[in-house]
């Protein structure tokens, strides 16, 4: 099995004349938790949507666990889990029913016990049999995360999933992501929460104006984690200011 869970090469994406991604290269190996940071409108969500096949790319290649997304989307999709936008969840279904549909889509006979355990840890169990439309934003976010994690896919693609989570669920989610990475999964996490980087991320990439502006490796992040937890935030701001000044 390939060690690379995600390989993105020269990814271009545009909406009409507006070039949103301009040749993005990105790799995620097993055990890596890569944080994708960047200012608003830098292309983070578009990159995530292109990786999950929700937006068609105009140039470049994209492999998930060795499977070319364009050539074999089904094989690629079996190897990643994506937490959908909570606003797009089926309002008329209960959380349990949405998980049940997700399980069926992944060819599972039942909602896996691991999903229900995680649901308990995230504090969403009491809402599991409520219709999604009657749930709060935070609870919907939890169901979206559970949908992404159902079936234990090797790669997780998560876009701003910490939004709306209470402190306990946020903590439990971080623990879950770290545990999964230790078991050999990979995670791509788009986030604005720079404060979580030192404790959670193993790698980070700064996206600006559709390009990867800077990358930070495991050594730098580990060193900052112990010596100066605020250093990552300062490094991101400095890189962005330097780019704006150019």
């Amino acid at each position: 099995m390939s060690d690379k869970l995600l390989e993105v090469r020269g990814l271009h994406l545009r909406f009409g004349e507006n070039h949103v991604l301009r040749g993005v290269d990105l790799d995620i190996a097993r055990g890596q938790l890569l944080g994708l940071v960047g200012p608003n409108g830098s292309g983070k969500t578009s990159l995530i949507r292109a990786i999950t096949g929700l937006l068609p790319m105009h140039a470049g290649s994209l492999r998930v666990a060795g499977n070319e997304l364009a050539a074999d989307p089904l094989a690629a999709r079996r190897n990643f889990g994506f937490a959908p936008d909570p606003a797009r969840l089926p309002a008329a279904l209960t959380g349990r029913q949405a998980l049940s549909v997700t399980a069926a889509a992944r060819g599972l006979a039942d909602v896996p016990e691991s999903a229900l355990t995680l649901c308990e840890r995230l504090g969403a169990s009491r809402w599991l049999d409520q219709r999604i439309e009657s749930c709060s934003l935070g609870t919907r976010q939890k169901f979206a995360i559970l949908i992404g994690l159902t079936g234990d896919p090797p790669l997780l693609v998560l876009d701003e999933v910490m939004n709306g989570l209470d402190p306990i669920s946020s903590h439990e989610l971080k623990l879950e992501l770290i545990e999964r990475c230790e078991r050999g999964c990979g995670v791509l996490l788009a986030t604005h929460g720079l404060e979580i980087a030192p404790t959670l991320l193993t790698h980070a990439a700064l996206l600006h104006d559709g390009r990867i502006l800077h990358r930070w490796g495991a050594e730098e992040l580990t060193a900052w984690r112990h010596a100066d937890p605020g250093a990552f935030e300062r490094a991101v701001v400095a890189a962005l200011r330097a780019e704006v000044a150019r």
Binding site: R88, L89, A105, R106, V157
Partner: peptide, 8 residues
């Protein structure tokens, strides 16, 4: 573009 679009 619905919530099932990224599932296999």
């Amino acid at each position: 573009n619905d919530w099932l679009a990224a599932l296999p």
